[in-house]
């Protein structure tokens, strides 16, 4: 599993791997918002947590169709399925690699981009925390969607349609943590619910992904 993770990370940072693409997309979306809404802080700061979360969510989506599709095309998925490693482990390693190349950099960059949107001060660390806790769920759900659509040509759009509704709980709790953090309110409840969603995803989705892959390999 660690090997698959290491290989995927290495592939991501090699030429054409797409590392940084999500981050650049996130940056551009966030920069575009003041152009559309107007530059006044009074208008921007209330919507900043929500905008940043939606931006992060869409940026996560961007690289999902590559999770299994490339391995499927070059036959590596067949070979991984026959290798002495459970498909559940492959699924978890793939999700972890996706998170390390998208979710983690997004989480770390978000507090800095939040400055552009005038997020009030105490919100920055909480935004980072909410993304760190929430984005693993996005990667896991997305990996599940990628497993479901791996056999399809042009599966990327279908993948987005499948995955986005499943992102709703994470988005609600994640944006709520960031908002409450910015307003200095108590955020224990949404943060623990966000953590619960992620923990549930870690526990269940690798199995669902592996089942989907087995069907799609036929």
């Amino acid at each position: 599993m660690i090997r698959i993770l290491a290989r995927d990370l290495r592939l991501a940072v090699r030429a054409g791997g797409g590392f940084g693409l999500s981050l650049a997309f996130f940056l551009i979306v966030v920069v575009l918002v003041p152009f559309a809404i107007g530059p006044e802080t009074a208008r921007l700061s209330p919507i900043a947590p929500g905008v940043l979360w939606i931006g992060a969510l869409l940026a996560c989506l961007l690289s999902l169709d590559r999770v299994f599709a490339l391995d499927r095309e070059d036959g590596a998925l067949d070979l991984l399925a026959t290798a002495p490693v459970p498909l559940e482990g492959v699924a978890l390693a793939k999700a972890a690699a996706h998170w390390l190349t998208t979710g983690l950099p997004l989480s770390l960059a978000a507090p800095f981009l939040a400055v552009l949107l005038g997020l009030p001060w105490p919100g920055h660390p909480w935004l980072c925390v909410s993304l760190l806790v929430g984005t693993p769920a996005l990667s896991l759900i997305g990996t599940f969607g990628a497993g479901l659509t791996v056999g399809l040509k042009r599966g990327g759009l279908l993948l987005s349609l499948l995955v986005l509704p499943l992102y709703v709980p994470t988005l609600i709790f994640g944006a709520d943590v960031a908002r409450r953090g910015a307003e200095g309110l108590d955020l224990g409840a949404p943060l623990s619910l966000l953590g619960a969603v992620t923990a549930g995803c870690v526990a269940l989705l690798p199995f669902a992904t592996a089942a989907a892959l087995r069907v799609n390999l036929r």
């Binding site: 290989r7 592939l11 054409g16 036959g75 590596a76 067949d78 290798a83």
Partner: peptide
Amino acid sequence: IAYGAHADGMKGTLTVAENLAFWAKMHG
């Protein structure tokens, strides 16, 4: 069983040695 298909599962951006080392480690 080891299966060798038309598609070889080798990654273009990795070197020959890196590709083989990955599969070697996967199979111990």
